[in-house]
Amino acid sequence: MLLKTRLFGEIDVKDEEVIYFTKPILGFDNCREYLLMQNESIFPTFWLQSINDPNLAFPVVSPFSVDDNYSINLQSPDLEDVKLKSIDDALVLTLMVVPQSLSSIRTNLRAPIIYNPENRIAKQLILYDEKYPIHYYVLDSSNN
């Protein structure tokens, strides 16, 4: 399938590349299928490109790369939803907001996405642990 995107131009999408979300990302109810894109010239280098809405792409980052102390404990139902035996087998990502002011780049550490690369199933979680902020400013030196 050929997908015409706003950020990446035309992409030839293969079925084996599509990531399926068990539930939509919060606020985007009509989008459950994505591609994980890598683009060296754009920070951050990973993007979730919606297949359902070619104009929608989310920059994403590993929360472990922005917060050295980040950790999550998943419950069995969360692991089962994406058919994982262990969180160690998952790719964990968080959505980023990249405004014009680079000092305001932030990510939501309280709503990570867990992705099983083996079967291409993903799910956004809502963590109730208040130690992780909804607005984690990536370039704020006081975070480290």
Rank of each mutant, 00 (worst) to 15 (best):
L79F: 00
L26P: 01
P112S: 03
I121G: 00
N39A: 09
P117T: 10
V98M: 15
N39F: 04
V66I: 14
V82D: 02
Y34E: 10
S104G: 00
F46Q: 13
S76D: 14
V92R: 12
I87E: 10
L79Q: 00
Q49F: 01
I134K: 10
Y132R: 08
I42H: 07
L95V: 13
I19Q: 03
S141R: 08
V61P: 05
T107D: 04
R106Y: 00
D67N: 15
I87C: 14
S101I: 10
E17K: 12
I72Q: 03
A111V: 08
P44I: 11
S76Y: 00
E40L: 01
Q100Y: 02
D89A: 12
V61W: 08
A57W: 04
G27A: 04
T45L: 14
Y20T: 12
S50T: 06
V98T: 15
R110K: 11
D129K: 08
V98C: 10
D81I: 01
E130R: 15
S41D: 09
I11E: 02
T107R: 00
S141H: 05
K23T: 12
I134A: 13
Y137P: 09
F46C: 14
V82G: 04
E40N: 07
E80G: 03
P117F: 12
D88S: 15
N108G: 08
L102R: 09
F58C: 13
V13G: 03
V60T: 11
H135T: 06
F43P: 15
P63S: 12
I42S: 13
L109G: 02
L139E: 02
T5Y: 10
P99F: 06
K131S: 12
F28L: 14
K14D: 01
T5M: 01
V97A: 13
I19R: 03
V92H: 14
N119Q: 03
I105E: 04
E40F: 05
N116R: 07
R6M: 11
S101K: 15
L35V: 06
R110Q: 10
F21E: 04
I121C: 09
I87D: 13
R6F: 08
T22R: 11
L93D: 15
Y128H: 09
Y132M: 04
T94Y: 02
R6E: 13
N116K: 08
L84A: 02
L48W: 03
Q38M: 04
N52Q: 11
L102E: 09
T94A: 02
L95I: 15
F58K: 12
I121Q: 14
Y34R: 12
I51R: 01
E10A: 07
R6V: 03
N144Q: 07
Q49R: 06
D140L: 00
L3Q: 09
C31E: 14
D140C: 00
K131L: 02
Y70K: 01
K14M: 00
P99T: 09
T22D: 10
L3S: 07
V61Y: 08
E16P: 07
F43A: 14
K85T: 15
S76A: 00
E17Q: 13
Y137Q: 02
H135D: 15
K14Y: 00
Y137N: 04
Y137K: 07
D15W: 05
D53R: 12
S141E: 14
S71Q: 06
Y137C: 08
K14F: 01
I87R: 12
A90R: 06
F21K: 08
P54W: 02
I113T: 03
R6G: 08
V13A: 05
A111G: 06
L139I: 02
N39G: 06
E80Y: 09
P59F: 02
V82Q: 05
L91I: 15
